[in-house]
Amino acid sequence: MTVIEIHNLKKSYNPGKLAVNDVSLSIQKGESLGLVGESGCGKSTLAHCLLGVEKMDAGSIVYNEEPIAHANRKQLRNYRRNVQTVFQNPTASLNPKLKIRDSLLDPYLQFKDDLQLKHFHFTSKQDFVQQLLETVELPKGLADRYPHELSGGQKQRVTIARAISIEPKLIVLDEPTASLDVLSQGAILELLGSLQQTLGMSYLFISHDLAAVYQLCQRIAVMKDGELLDVFRKEEIYDSNRHDYTKELIDIF
């Protein structure tokens, strides 16, 4: 079952140069799709269009068989409820003036009216926060701390907990490990993998790190200069008909 389809997406910031040029992708239920490419290749722009932060110039994003460009208020709300995100910089992703508890509850409070959670069962918000922290393997005592008291890895776990708190269908991971040290990177990737096992959501994992993508994802897409060059299953990575640029990337790692 397809969770989301991107058809012929185009986006440009400067006239004459397309940041994303005619990209079509689809993500299946429970699948991790890795999107790799060097800095500035348009992968983050693609994510931003997907999240509605940027307006696309052409093309369409189809969710629930409905292009979100034509979605009404209710459908848009449903889309937002089901597409969550984790950004690269965990420090910037958490409001420094809010306690971890309040940051964690943000999406829940926004969507609680039409929320039916399958995995999380709780009696109080307090209980919910504790469960979330537990799910991302953080000590329960962190709920009343402020972000600056946490390490980078811990903060990223908090943003992951926030993203999964309303059990979305898709999480857009925009280089979630790029600003972490190597040890935390590995731990976060493992956590993401196990969360996918328990919660069954899909990932769009954006990274310039092919090794990380290879570890987490079942399918890999390669982008360069705004164009989608290659999409293949993880097992096919060493196939002879891979794109030359893909082979270059493989050689680097």
Binding site: V53, Q84, T85, A92, S93, L94, D106, Q110
Partner: peptide
């Protein structure tokens, strides 16, 4: 301009909220 506001917007929080 910080990410946490962007994420709040992605979640559909109103400007007032």
């Amino acid at each position: 301009r910080k990410d946490y506001v962007t994420i709040a917007r992605i979640n559909g929080l109103s400007t007032f909220t």
